[in-house]
Each structure stands twice: as structure tokens, then as C-alpha cells.
Simulated scan of single mutants.
Amino acid sequence: MAASARRIRSQASPASHPERQQETRRAAARPELHVVKSEQADSASSQDRLRSFIEWTRSHTVPVIQVGIAIAFLGATAVGSLTLRTQMAENSFDSQQTEQQIEKLQQDIQTDQTKLDSLQASLPQKAQDMGMVPQQDSVTIDLNGYQPSDGSK
């Protein structure tokens, strides 16, 4: 049945039927539509628009509540995202400052270590200049076999 209806429509053309030719002529002769502005519509104040919006919200409470919840959710996510991004930027800045301080302290340590090494290297010469003599023999004490006396307990 669908095949026969299709075949009938496929054979129909506007040129074959005089009624269809008249319809196409009427459609072609129809004037174009254009927008005409009313002066009353232009002079409508924002108060009138606000009143109509309030009336609409009173008659459609469920959609207004849903829209309000959606707007509140979007606002909360925007504020949350902004807060997180701000916190991440602060953490990044603090991290960079800490790394710079660590590098500065490491440089200070290296400078102090260099000074210490130079002072240790010059120590024997300064001791000899003061009249000190380097130690020749060293004495060591081995306490591995030490036994404390009974009176010391």
C-alpha cells in the first residue's frame, strides 16, 4: 500500500494538473510579509515587562524553581572553579619562592664550605707562625678489654 501511494505521488507534477497550476500562481502572487512595529510596543516600559515576567513566574512556579536551581548551581561551580584556580596559582607562587630560597641557601652553604676549607688549609701555617709544633707521635687508648672496678658502680 505504501508503494502504490508513493508511485502516485511520484507521477504527480504541477504541470499535469490545472488545479495545481492555479495554486502555484496564487502562491507566487502572494505579497511578501514584513514586520510592522507598533508605537505602543516601542513605548512599553521596563516596568510593564517586569510585571509580565512576574505574572509569568507566578503561573509557572516549577520551571522558575528549576531555572533558579540551575543558575545557583552554575554560579556555585563558577565560584568554586575560580577559588580553586586562585589557590593553585598561590601554591605555585609559594612553591617558586621556596625553591628560590632553597637555591640561595645552597649557594650560601657552598660559599661557607669554601671559606671553611680555605681556613682549614691555612690552619697549619698559622699554627707554625705562632710557634706551635706539629704532633709527632700519637697516643691511642684501647678500651675493648676494659673492666670497671667494683667501687665505681
Rank of each mutant, 00 (worst) to 15 (best):
R7D: 04
S149D: 11
R25I: 06
A89S: 15
S52T: 08
D42W: 08
S45N: 12
E19A: 14
T111D: 04
P31M: 04
G145V: 02
Q110L: 08
R9D: 08
M88L: 10
I102P: 00
S59H: 09
Q11N: 14
P134G: 02
L123T: 07
E103M: 06
K37Q: 09
L143R: 11
Q106N: 15
L50S: 02
V139M: 07
K126I: 02
L74R: 07
A2D: 15
S43V: 05
P14N: 02
A5T: 07
D48P: 02
K115G: 02
L119Q: 14
Q136G: 09
S52C: 04
V139L: 12
T140A: 05
D112N: 06
A76I: 13
V67T: 11
S4Q: 01
F53W: 07
V79T: 06
D142R: 01
R26Y: 07
E19W: 10
T77V: 10
V64G: 01
S138E: 14
E99K: 11
Q87Y: 08
A121G: 06
I54A: 10
H60F: 07
Q87A: 11
A3E: 15
D137V: 07
T83R: 14
D94E: 15
F73W: 12
R26L: 12
S16E: 04
D150T: 08
Q147W: 05
S138F: 09
D108C: 01
K153F: 13
R6F: 03
E32C: 03
D112M: 05
Q128E: 15
P18T: 00
T86L: 03
A41G: 08
K115M: 09
G131D: 00
Q120A: 10
T24H: 13
G151H: 04
S81C: 09
D48I: 05
H60M: 09
R25F: 06
Q40E: 15
I102Q: 05
A70V: 04
Q110K: 10
T111P: 00
D117I: 03
R30L: 05
G80H: 08
K126A: 15
W56H: 14
Q113K: 11
W56G: 05
I65V: 13
S13K: 12
I65R: 14
Q87F: 06
T57V: 08
Q21Y: 00
N144P: 00
A72W: 02
P63K: 03
P31L: 03
